[in-house]
């Protein structure tokens, strides 16, 4: 699908990480709902491309920082050299919530007026994104501001995420590192997508499509593994497109 390639480019961002929202609900140990930050909630309001379908996100897992106030502050400032564990997930669904939808009753003022006259009126409109957790990533900040990836795991993380945890966009380097394993037994690092079996097991109609999306991204990240990826991709595409249509 060459046409899709350019569209996917924006999913891979470079530069500093960006918060796009916080965890507000979960459906299971690996299936979380994140509410995207709205206007005035953060300095840089995420735009739809930031929470696009198929984007890799990371959510910090709080493990052993209870009580140590300094370390918490340091990590919040991004200056901690302690290893930080993240759950890595993928955005696989988006819901636009509008409580006012359907309530076509009398209205005192329009939206612009409400904003102007009662700024403390909190809009109940929200964008919810669904995140499927695919694995874990442990990294540590190096003094130069660089991030060092310590370990990567695909599958179900042991620790659960917390409500209110920040959901952040992952950088290209992180996505790359997340998929490139260097096992001790093997000489060469190799491309790894160990989360595919559990994505398939989820029985959600969008998940296979998100898998294709992921493969498209990986094709750009790992051009040397095109033929390997094409096997999984063709298999998915066939099942998703040909078998369901035929």
């Amino acid at each position: 699908m060459p046409a899709n390639h350019n569209e996917n480019l924006f999913l891979l961002v470079e530069g500093p990480v960006m918060d796009i929202g916080k965890i507000v609900k979960s459906y299971s140990h690996i299936n979380y709902v994140c509410q995207v930050y709205g206007p005035r909630e953060v300095s840089q309001v995420p735009a739809p491309p930031d929470y696009a379908f198929g984007r890799f996100v990371r959510i910090a897992v709080r493990s052993e920082q209870n009580g140590d106030h300094d370390a918490y502050i340091m990590s919040a400032l991004g200056k901690s050299s302690e290893p930080q564990t993240y759950a890595v997930g993928v955005i696989y669904d988006t819901i636009l919530v509008n409580p006012e939808f359907g309530s076509l009753g009398p209205r005192l003022s329009n939206e612009t007026q409400v904003e102007l006259f009662s700024p403390d009126y909190i809009s109940e409109k929200a964008v919810l994104i669904y995140v499927m957790v695919l694995g874990m990533l442990e990294q540590r900040a190096l003094p130069g501001g660089q991030q060092e990836i310590l370990s990567v795991m695909h599958g179900v993380p042991l620790l659960s995420l917390e409500l209110g945890s920040d959901v952040q966009i992952m950088s290209i380097e992180e996505v790359q590192a997340f998929h490139y394993f260097h096992d001790e037994g093997k000489n060469q690092p190799y491309l790894h997508m160990g989360y595919i079996p559990h994505i398939i097991a989820q029985r959600n109609s969008l998940l296979p499509i998100v898998t294709l999306q992921i493969i498209d991204q990986l094709e750009q990240l790992f051009p040397e593994n095109l033929s390997l990826l094409s096997i999984v991709k063709r298999n998915f595409a066939w099942r998703l497109k040909v078998e369901t249509t035929g």
């Binding site: 190799y190 790894h192 595919i196 079996p197 096997i231 999984v232």
Partner: peptide, 11 residues
Amino acid sequence: IAPSEVAAMVG
């Protein structure tokens, strides 16, 4: 591509 590589990729 050896099938074992594909199997290794998906874990």
